[in-house]
Write a protein that binds this DNA or RNA. Structure first.
Lengths: 147, 147
DNA sequence: AATAAAATGAGAATCATTCTCAAAAGAAGA
DNA sequence: TCTTCTTTTGAGAATGATTCTCATTTTATT
């Protein structure tokens, strides 16, 4: 946490922005989560803990965290942008079950290497990769077969 | 075109839905495009050609075309869902330049194979893959360097 | 033509996200 | 600590893509 906070602070500093209490709370809460989350969920959680940060501030801070490289946009779920923190996480992609909506992860180091090579070949400076896979999870496949 | 139309018709039939004039026009227009498009652009084009199909019908038909396997969701651009047709297109991913917004493509047959293998290993029946890459295109890199 | 099921258009309704702006907080110096 | 200047914040309004409603029209079938 120390680390993430100082990264964020340095990022803000470099832009002449301030590491305010609201931004601290948002950062803390984001890193206390171990699942994908959307702005609304984050806002709700912050409120439950009776800490006061407005919805607007949550929405305003999320893009800053993305730019600081601390979180990334994840799968878009039910018309909402979702996020997840990156810090210390190995790169992974998401799969979403079309039947039950379950979300899971899979490592993609190798995929990233491949893409990196492709990008280089096209003289494109690759910075971010967003990869989502959908299909049917084994639970739903089994449920279906046994009908 | 014949082909796509019959695929769509068969799909609709299987669901007790009708291959109406509006759906035909939308299908034709979609396949006359060679770029990504969003619902609004599609609606505009259909109107220019003075064919009457309401915005609602466009929005209603797009998901049907996706389910029929004729088009797919592409990159989300400026808060809009965009689509592109799949029929006859080799699988590819998109890259988006963060600076100028340019969109390009790159083949990903190999990436898909890798993912397919991963999915199998997790007992997940992979159906769709959405892959978006962002970074800086060579034009913008050069423009930047020479400043 | 008659009937029933499905589709359509127009605009209202939704709902995530962004914007506005007056008031509050933070930083830096005297 | 008091000032001053800049950035942030909260509350709610505004925006804008997408979805929904429902009365009317099409389509397919008899």
């Amino acid at each position: 946490m120390r680390n993430q906070a100082s990264i964020f602070e340095a990022f803000l500093d470099g832009r002449g922005l301030k590491f305010t209490r609201a931004r601290q709370l948002i950062l803390e809460t984001v890193f206390s989560l171990h699942e994908h989350f959307d702005a609304e969920q984050l806002y709700d959680i912050i409120h439950k803990v009776s800490r006061d940060v407005s919805r607007a501030t949550v929405y305003r801070t999320l893009p800053l965290l993305v730019e600081a490289g601390l979180i990334q946009k994840s799968v878009r779920s039910e018309a909402r942008d979702t996020f997840e923190h990156i810090y210390g996480h190995p790169r992974h992609a998401h799969w979403v079950c079309k039947v039950c909506g379950a979300v899971g992860e899979t490592e993609i180091q190798d995929v990233l290497k491949l893409l990196q090579a492709k990008a280089r070949a096209q003289n494109f400076a690759l910075e971010e990769v967003s990869l989502a896979v959908s299909g049917v999870c084994w639970k739903c496949r089994n449920a279906n077969e046994s009908q």
